[in-house]
């Protein structure tokens, strides 16, 4: 291609972590590594455990929707649990999420470790043009996540109304409701969702349903501005909801009934 840029930078590359910054720039990536690793370890363990995911009308988000894996047992895939079948759905949503991408490219790939901080030794970098080009399909993961969100709302309602003795609110119900609220904040604040709902419109005043789409887009924008907070809060809430239900189901804790 003709007319490529001519003036190339001349300052020598900084070594990994080389910087004049004096603040704790490494704290963010370190926390990301810690929290994400802990979550992955916990989720993997729970997915393999295959038990203590249900108590009364409570169902762990790791196991919802609860699929029948009897067929797998018969064919000798005894290790298979319902969680393994469904977890790739939300996992793909989070993996391709525009916020998490920042978090893990920084923390795990050190591309870059932090702003104005040197990267690892010169290496090939293709961003999201080659291996990671699939990140462009985030919207499909979002469609899946929206389906899961509907199911989890159903679960939360079941946790209120799904009891044999009528409506019932326990601590577990509140935990599940909080979780699904945070998940809604996260899912509906998704950048792809924002694009779908109204971001792709150029002239709201003349487009079909423009006024409505503008209003929805504004609402989604409010969530989107807090996407990072929702991403972490909902990650914690999913794990804690599962942990709570596991403890109740395995008898370590007793669910407190409130109403």
């Amino acid at each position: 291609m003709a007319n490529r840029t001519v003036h190339l930078p001349v300052a020598p590359l900084e070594p990994l972590g080389g910087t004049l910054r004096k603040d704790n720039w490494w704290a963010g990536p370190a926390a990301t590594i810690l929290v994400l690793s802990a979550f992955i370890v916990y989720a993997t363990w729970r997915a393999f455990e295959g038990s203590a995911y249900q108590w009364g009308a409570y169902l762990s988000p790791f196991y919802s929707p609860l699929l029948d894996v009897g067929w797998a047992r018969k064919t000798g895939l005894a290790f298979l649990t319902p969680a393994m079948l469904i977890l790739p759905g939300p996992a793909s949503f989070r993996f391709t999420c525009y916020y998490y991408r920042k978090a893990y490219y920084r923390a795990f790939a050190w591309d870059p470790p932090a702003c104005g901080v040197g990267e690892r030794a010169p290496h090939r970098y293709n961003g999201e043009t080659k291996l990671f080009v699939f990140q462009n399909l985030h919207r499909y993961a979002m469609y899946v996540a929206v389906v899961f969100l509907v199911i989890l709302w159903k679960d939360a309602l079941v946790a209120v109304f799904g009891w044999s003795d009528g409506a019932h609110v326990g601590l577990g119900t509140l935990v599940m409701l909080t979780n699904v609220v945070l998940l809604s904040g996260y899912t509906l604040g998704c950048h792809s969702f924002r694009h779908l709902i109204g971001g792709s419109v150029n002239a709201y005043s003349s487009a079909a349903l423009g006024a409505l789409r503008f209003r929805l887009w504004k609402l989604v924008t409010v969530l989107n501005e807090r996407h990072m907070q929702f991403a972490w809060a909902s990650l914690f809430s999913v794990a804690l909801t599962d942990l709570y239900i596991r403890m109740v189901a395995s008898g370590i804790l007793t669910d407190v009934r409130i109403l």
């Binding site: 870059p112 104005g116 293709n126 961003g127 999201e128 043009t129």
Partner: peptide
Amino acid sequence: FGIGYCNITRC
């Protein structure tokens, strides 16, 4: 303009 090179690390 290589938008794919951006890995949205937000610096």
